[in-house]
Amino acid sequence: MLKHFYRFIVLIIFLAAVAEVVLRVKYGFCNSPLYISDPDFEYIYAPNQHVERFGYTIRTNSHSMRNEEVLPTDSVVILLIGDSVVNGGSLTDQDSIASTILEKRFLKDFNKRVRVLNISAGSWGPDNVAAFLKKYGTFKAKLMCLVTSSHDAHDIMSHQSPVGIDPGWPDKQYKVALYELWDRYRWIFFYYFDTIFFTPATEQTTTQTPENVAVQDSVKPDSAQKEALNNAGIRKPGIGFNPGYEQLYEIAKVNSIPMFIYLHPEISEVEMGHFNDQGVEIIQFAEEKNIRLINELQLGVSTKLYRKMDLVHYNSQGQIFMADNLYPLFQEYLNIRK
């Protein structure tokens, strides 16, 4: 009996060792992109990083941008600013984010080095971006594009950095991959456990049967359902309209930088066909300030361009979609012609 117990212990140790190696080598555990805190804009990726995570490459320059280093010789600079939609996070490869795609496209089409600086971080609001620009300047930019979503309207800085506190904002690497898996991603296990064992069979059938889906699509939602869809998505607790919109407008005005807003919808808004009440606030602000606003709902955005199980973030095709939309706009403002 004791012999079997020892064998069992050895097997557990062996499996744990294999899992540790696989997590590190194949998935990049213990090699996460790190963050730093900042008193002005809360947090950002740590500078000068080059990590491989989940098969994707994440690089940052000395200003924590997902770009190559900014050089004194860079004469045509665009600021592409926003949150994780722009940043892409660790689930988007460096070559797949819109800023990289746009820089390569300008170089290929015009043989011209056009810098599209990716100034962003996950869960940033416009006030975070404005604080960054106030601290580091505008890098001689000739154009500013703010990519924003409805929830940014009230996503106001609390100046309480999550870095080193929340597992999603690590400031140092985990030493054990298995512990990182549990500490950062255990919610996934609980999600699937709850879905499999506690979701009523009728609900599962409804979402999985093509015939039922067709019936649902043919039924127009009543006012209560419309209200529920309007209130769906991300709701931030900030009181009042985010002051960062006004601050970015003033920064652009003082520095004579043309600015426009690219309004990116959440999944619920794509399904609804229009922006919710928070998005309407952003649209109204742009109208009041006479800022050009690009409504992505009018450009044919589809839920197929979003990551699975995600409310707002693009997949790699979505990043291409955004780059395709921005490219002619950037050409228009910079007057770049073939």
Rank of each mutant, 00 (worst) to 15 (best):
M1L: 04
M1I: 07
F5L: 15
R7H: 12
V10I: 15
L11Q: 08
I13W: 09
F14M: 08
E20F: 06
V21P: 00
V25P: 00
C30Q: 05
N31S: 11
L34V: 14
Y35K: 07
I36F: 10
I36Q: 15
I36K: 14
S37H: 02
S37Q: 13
E42K: 03
E42P: 03
I44R: 00
Y45F: 11
Q49T: 02
Q49I: 01
E52N: 11
T57K: 12
I58K: 09
H63V: 08
S64F: 03
M65Y: 06
M65E: 14
P72C: 05
I78E: 07
L79W: 07
L80F: 14
D83N: 15
D83R: 02
V86S: 09
V86N: 09
N87L: 10
D95S: 15
L102Q: 05
F110C: 06
N111D: 15
A121C: 13
G125N: 03
Y136S: 04
L143A: 13
L146Y: 07
L146A: 06
S149N: 12
H151S: 13
A153K: 00
I156G: 05
S161Q: 03
K175Q: 14
W182V: 12
D183A: 13
D183P: 03
R186M: 09
W187F: 12
W187Y: 14
I188M: 10
Y191G: 02
Y192G: 00
F193Y: 12
F193L: 12
F198K: 14
T199Y: 00
P200K: 13
T205E: 13
Q208P: 00
E211G: 01
D217K: 15
P221F: 08
S223W: 06
S223H: 06
Q225W: 08
A228S: 06
N231I: 02
N231K: 15
I234S: 08
R235E: 11
K236L: 14
P237A: 00
P237T: 01
G238Y: 04
N242I: 08
N242S: 04
E246S: 14
E246A: 15
E246I: 10
L248M: 10
Y249K: 11
A252V: 01
I261Y: 14
Y262L: 13
L263G: 02
E269T: 06
E271F: 10
N276W: 09
E281D: 13
E281V: 06
I282T: 07
E287R: 14
E287C: 01
K289F: 07
I291G: 06
L293V: 09
G300L: 02
K304N: 11
R307L: 12
R307D: 02
M309V: 04
V312N: 05
H313W: 04
N315F: 08
N315G: 04
G318P: 05
Q319Y: 08
N325M: 11
P328N: 05
Q331R: 13
K338C: 01
